[in-house]
Design a protein around this nucleic acid. Structure first.
Length: 283
DNA sequence: AAAGCACCCTGTACGC
DNA sequence: TGCGTACAGGGTGCTT
């Protein structure tokens, strides 16, 4: 399931293969993949377009085109890009949703098992990413900023960190890992974290994302994230709590537990990430 | 501001 | 073995 580190790796892998290329043909194999504009306009606008840059914002991948438009992709759960020498059809990959012939003869293929991934072709980037929170690896994300933003928040810290309008790029895996790293219980009320906890959390978020990027992202189960060249990430071997209920915490030896928050799984160590005895969660 | 839920979709894991 | 069902996930949109 692509989160910031996976999308960052996709962007890095695609960049040298796409920048400088011209799109010659656009084949939409499943029309639902195009969110905007219409499929017809999308195909028309991409015709002969040059790709001048490949970037990432939060979990969005962006291809910047020479005529000023930006083609965003959100991979959601199972979206994957491949660059290959030959066109694929349903027989090669039943999950191929779109393919693009480039001027060097290679094909950019978008494959997405669960059909959640979307394309957005816009002139104004803010239309797609305007409401996102800051980049957790950017200079705007400081411990001071985090402390300021957490003040007065009544919701649970884990749910807040998953909110892309609060902070862009964290998903279920890296949130659980960061909270473990910081020793903060996922059900803590965000506004009650101490300065020390906020500082640890800020550091943990950056460490976990940096490690995820350096390890090529996380490839897990059927939602396995795969590189454009077919390679796998290696960060799943480094996960401490995510999907590891029953395993022992490497820090204290206690068994990792799974709970559900906002209809989503959360994994944590009940000893390293204890809740205050005060039922209000105040410290 | 926050939470709940339906929805989008399909592969997998489970119970019988 | 095979069937049916629950579940997982990110994000949006609607309701409370």
């Amino acid at each position: 399931m692509p989160e910031l580190p996976e999308v960052e790796n996709v962007a890095r892998k695609l960049r040298p293969r796409l920048v400088g290329r011209t799109i010659l043909e656009t084949h939409i194999l499943w029309p639902g993949v195009v969110d905007r504009p219409s499929v017809i306009q999308f195909r028309e606008m991409l015709r002969r377009a040059d790709i001048v840059d490949v970037r990432r914002r939060g979990k969005f991948l962006s291809f910047h085109l020479d005529f000023g438009h930006i083609w965003f992709t959100h991979l959601r759960m199972t979206g994957k890009y491949f660059v290959q020498a030959a066109a694929v059809d349903a027989g090669d990959d039943p999950h191929a949703r779109a393919r693009f012939l480039l001027d060097d003869g290679t094909w950019l293929v978008f494959s997405d098992t669960r059909k959640f991934g979307r394309f957005y072709l816009v002139h104004n980037a803010a239309e797609v990413v305007g409401n996102l929170g800051p980049e957790p690896l950017g200079s705007a994300f400081t411990a001071e900023w985090l402390a300021q933003q957490l003040a007065g928040r009544r919701g649970e810290i884990k749910r807040l960190l998953l909110n892309q309008e609060f902070l862009a790029g964290l998903g279920n895996i890296y949130v659980s890992e960061a909270l473990w790293q910081a020793g903060v219980h996922p059900e803590r009320i965000a506004g009650t974290l101490t300065v020390a906890e906020i500082t640890r959390l800020h550091t943990a978020i950056r460490l976990v994302l940096d490690a995820g990027i350096a390890n090529g992202g996380t490839s897990l189960g059927d939602r396995q994230y795969v590189y454009p060249d077919g390679g796998l990430g290696r960060h799943q071997e480094r996960l401490v709590v995510y999907d590891r209920a029953g395993d022992l915490c490497p820090r204290c030896g206690y068994a990792i537990e799974r709970i559900v928050q906002g209809q989503r799984s959360t994994y944590y160590c009940p000893r390293c990430q204890s809740l205050p005895t005060n039922p209000e969660g105040l410290t």
